[in-house]
Design a protein around this nucleic acid. Structure first.
Lengths: 228, 228, 228, 228
DNA sequence: AATGAATGAGAATTCATTCAT
DNA sequence: GATGAATGAATTCTCATTCAT
């Protein structure tokens, strides 16, 4: 269960696809600038509207230089998904650190996710578009996050904090789907008069969602260890 | 709240975008053949890989003829999404008809959704891709479905079948997100040795999801009418 | 022995590589304009300096139109070699028609070749460059011409006009090599003050070459049927 | 008549095109490694497929270093042709050394040429491709070889071994054209099952060619000294 | 002397859309 | 109504050459 995820995590030595040689300091900096530009361009224009030229211009880098670091538009897109995955998971686990109860942890995790989404609209758009650009990469992304949810749910079940009859895998995917669509509807679709998305999700909505989750997960009274 | 949905439903009189005149019998048939061909081509190849030539060839129609019926590639795509939206909602409400309890209705609704997805795995792709082709159309699609959920939840709350403290709108989006990701993970990603998706979702998964939903929606003991 | 040559001759029905459909009258005219432009551009600039844009501009045709008639630069190049081959062979056999002796026929054949070369510098350059662009096509071209020489030599041997001990195939390739290099040196490399090649080969050179050939082919005295 | 050839022969002092200064010992070694790598790469891949990176990698030298020794890709190609010209002429004159008659010398010369071709089949390609890369260099190459033929023919004419009415220049070009095409057809096009060219030209073909040449050059009976 | 990261002009190719027939 | 030849803007990718280190 950890194998596919590793692909996303291990920090392989980066090499130039053009020369096959490992990257120098300068090279790593250039690669990072390209990734940052790609994040912005893909987020704003989407995969198909984006072009290598737009990315390199945004990065302030020559067109040909792109191909010293990435094989193609698809390659940088995939690298970006992997990068975002690492960051969103980091953002979530950071937010959950120090939570003293399941409920607190849940809220903190979702809050971390929404915060990251608000700050990086790229995450949302890029990840969902990955379904049509590189399905395999999308699977890795989703799977990796779900694994974290699932492990948390299992632990909470052992602690008696979560309905023991829930299937943790199914519940994890359900939670992820919830988060995605609520984020889309109440964060990304909400715009002010100038068309800018809000800095964070409406607390009322957040609380409503929290209640939904709480209902779903909480052990039902009088059922503690007696399941099925 | 009903205005946008109407756009999806009302059967406007069809006119040729080229001449502005209403379609003849023969014209309507040609238009339908184009839509059917587009459904197949978009489903198999995705929006960007699809081309007008492929669609017209599949429809057995001259290339130029396409523009007598649709303004652009995007236009026919949008028409197709609207068509699919009508069909999936029909499939769901048909499934829910005659359910005698909230629980039964829930399960029937999701079952209808999954059945439609299993029967038209590729059509699912068209809808999700709409997010990147015509976001406005996708909003209509989602909104229209969510409205149905929401109305159902409100009614069930009034009947005391659903936790009165839940926000029906948020809960409806949560349910939709759940359905999407569970359908993707446990239906579309599951393939047999020949790479074909299963005819229906695994009943065990379905039951696990049902329990999750049931937990989320059920009124908590001792709270029945006293909330809000 | 006739199989490969046929490839050069048979007038296949022309189809568009884009649509797979046979060409209309208009289509055939466009294709011909492209071939003529390609002849000029390849001759002047060579294969690698030539570009599709240059060819279509010369033909007075839109860039995209090119791809309705040819798959690639290489494809039109090959079509051009085949076309030139047909024409130079026609030019040679026309020139040889009505020659009343071997000697006369030889001279007429080479004269036809040089005349065609002077009028179509493309022949020379395109054909020789084919060695590096499409070796297979070059083989067809050379083989087809050599077959004609060879058949002529055999007939002349039977008539007692040519040294019966000569191997007609080897002699045919020798004659072709001669013609090529003499044409290069004394026709294409000769330029007037303005850098233009002469309209025909210097008659003195032509006569010198004719003597060389005559020596090579003529039956040696007293050897007629008595070979080796 | 000797001026252009000198360009091929004189061993100019080598200077760096970058600094204009004469090469050091180490520099000369680097230059030689580049030339050897270029020979292999141009031979295997042709001029346009070859790239500076491929050459420097093969030479085990940094990319930028290339430009300390050669101005451009074309420059190193020309240097290579000149090098090969020297070697093929050396191979031919070595073969002709000690021949005791015109006939023997002729055969030896062609044998030397074919041997060189068989041993360096790919180098042959470099020379022929020069026609399209650097026509001027090819002229030098051809001219230099033809001059040797021509001088030999003149001497043989004086000795009464060659038809005095032949024009030695035209005959020399004719012989060279013959050799080229016969070498191409009967040496380079002949491949065994594994696609490798034979080690030498078929002796039967060689003899057939020799007879053709012999016919062409031999003084005709009864004409010995009376011509012109 | 040597290096290799950076550059950008230039090439091939695609395809939504137009319009004359 | 129907057709399909024609179009050209836009995109991806290559590679000879430069130059700061």
């Amino acid at each position: 269960m950890s194998a596919p995820g590793d692909l996303l995590d291990e920090q392989q030595e980066l090499v130039s696809p053009a020369t096959g040689r490992p990257l120098t300091k300068r090279g790593e900096a250039t690669r990072r600038r390209l990734l940052e530009a790609a994040e912005a361009v893909f987020a704003e224009q989407g995969y198909h509207e984006a072009s290598i030229v737009k990315i390199t211009e945004r990065a302030g880098i020559g067109l040909g230089t792109f191909y010293l670091y990435f094989d193609s538009k698809q390659t940088i897109f995939e690298a970006l998904v992997i990068d975002l995955n690492r960051r969103v998971r980091h953002s979530m686990s950071e937010a959950m650190e120090g939570a003293s109860s399941r409920l607190e942890a849940e809220r903190a995790g979702f809050a971390g996710f929404f915060r990251f989404t608000a700050e990086h609209p790229a995450l949302y758009r890029v990840v969902r578009e990955a379904e049509f650009v590189s399905p395999e990469t999308l699977r890795l992304h989703y799977t990796r996050i779900v694994e974290g949810y699932e492990a948390g749910l299992r632990a909470a079940q052992r602690a008696g904090d979560v309905d023991p009859q829930l299937d943790p895998a199914v519940a994890a995917w359900a939670l992820m789907g919830m988060g995605e669509l609520i984020g889309m509807r109440f964060l990304l679709w909400e715009r002010d008069a100038e068309g800018r998305p809000p800095a964070e999700i409406d607390p009322v909505v957040f609380d409503a969602m929290a209640r939904f989750i709480d209902n779903a997960l909480a052990p039902r009274r009088g059922q503690d260890g007696d399941a099925k």
